[in-house]
Design a protein around this nucleic acid. Structure first.
Lengths: 236, 236
DNA sequence: AGGTTTCTAGATCTAAAGATCTAGATATCA
DNA sequence: TGATATCTAGATCTTTAGATCTAGAAACCT
């Protein structure tokens, strides 16, 4: 039969939307495409997650404005399954924060319900090719929000000089251990120096960073990019 | 004169590239467009920054692979001037990390030198409309990198439960003050309770978070999204 | 009404942290 | 070679921090 011959070629899709009518509409639309097949639908996120585990679809169209468990959480959980399922977020709002969060947790696409159906089909085709699809309007909003986030983040750091630059190499080593919650004794052992030497270094660090205790020193270090320079942790 | 009449309409552009020949080529190309005008060029970043201050251009085409001061730093500095100048990064490489960092610090566009000249013109037009322009190939790379960053970041957090959930309201208040480097005495004053009460809370916090001292508690709180829930700080 | 949780707070003690001063050994730089 | 910076480390003392135990008051749940 035709169905069997094409079985391996068809893109398996699961729809998730709490509005049943909307679900039917999208199913109709998607099934019109010869290469797509809606293999299951769900009206809430928990059912959806179980369906995904069972059928391992290629693509999920997920309404992220649902009661109970919201769509974003569902996306996170599905992503954690690591099945390579491409998730396209579907919503009525073009809220930049929502778009940003959806992309952050791994959505491969984001489209508005008000958009033309052709765009939905195109989005599915794109994500199936491993691409990410954002309509140009949403992509602008995403980038605006993205850049705004960073601007705010660096704004607090640039209003005054970074006192970390005055630390000597040894002091940096000591501070790094402090940011791991190590005691004087621990630092002394790890650096093969005496405990009093550590205290000397720490006191010098305090003066240079203009703080009174180790907690404040650690906080200063974290807030001023000390860990970012040392470790990997992408600081976005 | 024609030049005066159209003065307010022309888009003022500054080119920055350490390769002089390349500079001439781009200038030629851009000037062919009636609406664009290259008002200055520079072969290094420091000169470029001074030119920007002086002429306040609409758009800057910046090669980010330059010796001495690199282009990314220059972009940061120009952004800090807050003149609303749109910066388009220009480079030979489509390194995702480079793209990501350029966008992060505020570039409004990113194009490869190997790309067609029409794309450069289009990019200028787009950014002048307040949009961000990334050729689709680069935009894919950007998103891949973007999502990978977050996946790695959350990977360390999701491997075990978040002990912060077991804290009572009062304990959260105390912990919040600890993450600001406040002493027992300070916490007591701010919460209008006795110092011994604070100690009791802090000891309970230590047990719940399975740590031994305040520095470790603060580090646990920071690494497990305590501040993110409380304050603004977009944690990307 | 009785159990549970939470917030409060005292007493007591030990361990760590921090402040301050002095000082020797190297290394670096002018 | 003499000044400077860095790393080292001792002595001494005060102040926080942290551990442990007990216990009352209020709120909440069943």
């Amino acid at each position: 039969m035709r169905r069997n011959i094409e079985f391996n070629k068809k893109v398996k899709i699961i729809l998730v939307d709490d509005n049943f009518d909307h679900l039917l509409g999208i199913r109709e639309l998607v099934n019109l495409e010869g290469n797509f097949e809606v293999i299951a639908t769900a009206t809430n996120a928990n059912i959806a997650i179980n369906l995904v585990k069972k059928y391992q679809p290629d693509v999920i169209l997920m309404d992220i404005n649902m009661p109970e468990k919201d769509g974003l959480t569902a996306i996170s959980e599905i992503e954690r399954l690591n099945l390579g399922t491409k998730i396209i977020a579907l919503t009525g709002y073009d809220d930049p924060d929502l778009i940003f969060r959806a992309m952050k947790i791994g959505a491969k696409g984001y489209i508005l319900k008000t958009m033309a159906s052709a765009q939905l089909i195109y989005a599915i085709e794109e994500v199936m090719q491993g691409k990410i699809y954002l309509p140009s309007g949403l992509s602008s909003r995403f980038f605006e929000y993205f850049q705004k986030s960073f601007k705010e983040e660096t704004a607090t750091n640039t209003n005054q000089e970074n006192l970390l630059q005055y630390l000597t190499q040894r002091e940096e080593e000591v501070l790094e251990l402090l940011t791991q919650g190590v005691t004087y004794k621990g630092v002394a052992q790890q650096l093969f120096i005496s405990e009093t030497t550590v205290k000397t270094h720490v006191n010098n660090i305090f003066q240079k960073l203009q703080v009174n205790d180790r907690t404040q020193a650690v906080l200063y270090a974290i807030n001023n990019g000390f860990l970012n320079r040392k470790k990997l942790k992408i600081a976005i």
